[in-house]
Amino acid sequence: MDTKVSLYLDPQIRDWVLFPITLVMILVGILRHYIVILLQSPPKKMTRAAIREQRALLRSQILRESSGNSPVPPAFYQSISQHLSQSFESGSYLKDGPPKSDAPTAPPNPMSDPAAMDGMMAGMKTQAVMMVPQMVLMGWINFFFQGFVLIKLPFPLTLGFKSMLQRGIETPDMDVRWVSSLSWYFLNFFGLNGLYALILGNDNSADSSRDMAMSPYAGVGLQQPAQAQDYNKLFKAEKDNLELAEGLYSWTGKDIETRLLKKYGKLP
């Protein structure tokens, strides 16, 4: 096979197609990183009531966590636990105060809550910055360089890689080592992350392959956890957990004197 070179690539292709595509993709990635930084809105300021609501569950979780071997004596444990149960029952930890009896029980629609809406918009905005340049780039490559063979890989590959490396060229017989322009685009698309990390630091937002798997809503959950949660329901559930923990409760100081006397050999 080496004796007969099947294909000879014009060096002009290297200079005017291969390098420009790579360079443009790197530059677009860096540009995106800075645009995303510009678009990021500062974290929203929360009211005291909202923080209180969000953290109320934490209180009972902390209490429950150690209930099997609690550092807190029974009388105090009971009072803390019952206080929390009652507050959860009456809903006094809710941001908007205790619910009215005739209020609808359906979970709040995220579209109607302006705070949740903002978070979603932020996610969509960054998403747009991710997708638009990639679409433009792909169109550019498809329009000008369709069917180009750009590079020959220096190592042999099996036929299975054909669809990956020769996208856009429908030839059954060409050696798999030849890479088409569209495939080169995809290779860069997935492979430039290491380079971005080198240039921009580790938590950069230049890499777009990561967002491909994410839906526009996936980012929302990360940025503002539990935004659309129905705290009233969560509190009711937590109340049951508290009762369960109360059943499991035991104080570390319960038999401490016999344990210590045994430890120091005073009791058998």
Binding site: A75, T258, L267
Partner: peptide
Amino acid sequence: PSQTPVPEHVKLLDELATE
């Protein structure tokens, strides 16, 4: 006030603390 029972073996505890 917290209804904690008085530990058993107070005498022994006293000895232990002294020791």
